[in-house]
Design a protein around this nucleic acid. Structure first.
Lengths: 254, 254
DNA sequence: CGTCAGTTTGACTGGAATCAAAACCTGTGG
DNA sequence: CCACAGGTTTTGATTCCAGTCAAACTGACG
């Protein structure tokens, strides 16, 4: 099913083993896994798919037989109201599996779509079921799913009770923190997202996003240019965002 | 640890076995469990606690050693912004375990609080860990956790992109559907929530909630009186709410 | 009968949406 | 190397939904 040798192309970000390694590292941040379990993860099979900007790669209303691992690019979970308004409910970066839970709930209720050009590894549910035979892997997957819930809860708070500037800052902080950044006070990171997409993620209008971003730039906290975010003052940004990373559960607790 | 005989007091809603039965029934809606696994659930130990209105029973920033099973009443998961604004991010009714995931993520990041007088069964993590030794129970728990995520996503959409009237209607629909109702077109159900609490759940102001509720009553869809919701036109309400229950994953899929 | 929590009403304000158009990129092909 | 086309970003003017403030009302309860 998969002819991947553990050699040099591990460094190639377009190669499955590189993405699986990233995925494993994220799991290991929160869970302990035996070497045997680790190699079960690294040997997961899957097909690579190239997704272009704004393309849906998992469709609500269908039935899933594969779970998706983001290898490169930025993707989103999103829904749509009756009158056609979009709402992004989660963002996913390289190393994330946006629909790992689909092995338990194959009926898809939210779209997954690429916000930038993205590369996806489609892993068959059957292979995941086999991996989950290791109880420690099952727990690690379950734990990561639980974190998804706390993140979604934080989004509810963000959208429900914070103003435009704070909301956007919070979203930026979350992606930065999940990318493993935040040790320096100023840094850049990849955030290939348009202002329209930020609007859909924060429940705002594109025009208001634009003005709020200008405000964040004017106050010297962050600015976006092209596909990268430039954080100028990480502590100031976190404070403006009312951001407290505990909900990401990045420190291992079990 | 627990002296519960399988006798008549199973009917008593204040008795642990009654709540555990309700919990099991909810699991069985989504997952298949062997009789052995079922009895492992029914024999979970725990202490009963009476919680009064507006009292927090799980505190953010602390470490959990027990998970909570709602035996009676309405409870909420909620957070707070720096400037003290509250946001409810989930509602829980009898039979729900709001923090089952705490056995995997013991560091609490969201408060749990009673919206009405409530009864809670506090189940030790150790007992849950033992139950999770049955892989089918682990999957059932994990599956229910995954549904929590889809519900939270729907809340993000609700708050981010729907107007006040629709938001409130949607919240009412969700609780009704999760209570197992919706076969008749008009029915009543228990919803012990104040307009202030609805405001905190929907990201609105109390005054605007009041006006929107009047609107829902005027158009003959629902009205709340005391602790009960009176649905007058279930199909009309669902339509006004843009409510599509698929995201609750109530039909069994595996 | 006073108290208190919750609900209702009215007048006013403000933040964000909407509409419309101009300016700006960025990649493409002539 | 320039022109063009597309999607983005930016700006300004205007509107409206929902927030805020304040006060009156209701009803349960001691």
């Amino acid at each position: 099913m998969d002819d991947r040798p553990q050699t040099a192309e591990t460094r190639d970000p377009a190669h499955p083993s590189s993405a699986l390694r990233l995925f494993l590292e994220k799991l290991l941040r929160r869970s302990n896994l035996s070497l045997e379990a680790q190699s079960a993860i690294l040997n997961l099979p899957g097909d690579v798919a190239q997704i272009h900007r704004n393309q849906d790669f998992v469709i609500a209303g269908t039935k899933n037989t594969h779970a998706s691992l983001v290898m490169a690019g930025l993707t989103a979970r999103c829904g749509q109201t009756r009158d056609g308004q979009r709402q992004i409910t989660a963002l996913h970066i390289a190393g994330d599996m946006p629909d790992l839970h689909s092995m338990l709930l194959p009926n898809v209720t939210f779209w997954l779509q690429a916000l930038s050009t993205a590369t996806i590894l489609r892993v068959p549910h059957a292979a995941l079921q086999q991996a989950v035979g290791h109880p420690e892997i099952a727990q690690a997957f379950w734990r990561d799913g639980a974190v998804d819930t706390t993140i979604a809860s934080e989004w509810v708070m963000n959208i429900g009770r914070r103003n435009a500037k704070t909301r956007i800052a919070h979203m930026v902080c979350e992606v930065a923190a999940r990318s493993g950044l935040g040790s320096a006070n100023a840094f850049d990171f990849s955030l290939p997202i348009t202002q329209n997409q930020i609007a859909d993620a924060t429940g705002l209008s594109p025009v208001h996003v634009n003005r709020s971003l200008q405000d964040l730039k004017r106050t010297g906290l962050v600015f976006l240019s092209g596909a990268t975010a430039h954080v100028l003052d990480w502590t100031g940004l976190q404070s403006a965002a009312d951001f407290h990373p505990a909900y990401l559960h990045i420190a291992k607790s079990a």
